[in-house]
């Protein structure tokens, strides 16, 4: 589904990704862990198409297409979803109107008729239950004045509405209390299928108790320095990132 080969990227003059290799297949959940500043969020941003980053080498193939050639909107319409670490507050744009626009643009791209008001409402109700999000929240301006937990739930709700093939959760757990974390994870687990995949970017192991990954990768200094199964996350939790750092630094 997603094949990243030797991906390198920088922001301004600073090299951040120094050769990432990653292969994600349908039905899999991959976790990317790593200390602060290792490049986790950069990887998520580059995949979603944020313009601040310049890709200086390597390739990314997504469902047979060259992902890096696509605009951010086309990446989304092709089935890529980024749950933002810091969802943006947009006053004056109602959440419902925003999601309706997004859903219908995707349908148009795929050659489908736009949803009418009744169809949209029915699907929305269904997905709202999934992520335990309240109607009153969706009537408000997009993320404006939302608590941290509400913003993250809104991200998962948008994901549910857009039904992506590959969802990247960029530190979705940061700033969440245990109840919010449970709701978010529960939403993700219900959306899991053999056809879609998840890339969970996180600093802590805690989220992975709820969203159990098939593979765990440790990103350090712009490279994946260690890959393993979910036991690796537990080991990191126990030993911290220092042993990874020293191993990696010795190897260089």
């Amino acid at each position: 589904m997603l094949k990243i080969e030797n991906l390198q990227a920088r922001i301004e003059e600073k090299e951040i990704l120094k050769g990432i290799n990653l292969d994600i297949k349908p039905g899999e959940i991959h976790a990317i862990m790593g200390p602060n500043g290792s490049g986790k969020s950069t990887l998520a941003s580059v995949l979603a198409g944020r313009a601040d980053y310049e890709v200086t080498g390597g390739s990314v193939e997504f469902l047979g297409k060259d992902l890096l050639e696509l605009s951010p909107e086309d990446r989304s319409r092709e089935g890529l979803f980024l749950a933002f670490q810091y969802p943006v507050e947009i006053p004056g744009v109602s959440t419902t109107n925003f999601i309706k626009t997004a859903v219908n643009e995707k349908r148009k791209y795929q050659g489908e008729e736009p949803l009418d008001a009744a169809q949209f409402l029915r699907i929305m109700k269904e997905k709202m239950n999934l992520v335990e999000i309240n109607q009153s929240l969706l009537s408000r301006s997009l993320n404006e004045g939302f608590s941290g937990g509400e913003k993250k739930r809104n991200e998962i709700f948008q994901m549910a509405m857009l039904e992506p093939k590959l969802a990247i959760l960029d530190e979705t757990d940061s700033g969440l209390d245990i109840d919010a974390l449970r709701i978010v994870a529960n939403g993700v687990n219900q959306l899991r299928s053999k056809d879609n995949a998840f890339l969970v970017v996180t600093h802590y192991q805690r989220l992975l108790d709820y969203i159990v990954p098939d593979f765990v990768h440790v990103l350090y200094n712009g490279r994946i320095v260690k890959s393993g199964t979910k036991e690796l996350a537990l080991e990191l939790e126990e030993r911290g990132y220092d042993f990874i750092k020293s191993e990696a630094d010795q190897a260089v």
Binding site: S76, L82, P87, G92, V93, A102
Partner: peptide, 28 residues
Amino acid sequence: DEEALFYLRARGISETNAKALLLHAFAG
């Protein structure tokens, strides 16, 4: 706001529509 624009586009909304949504909200 570039960040807002990217957020909308990352949800599949075209650049033109994303700008229109933001400007419409501004005028609202």
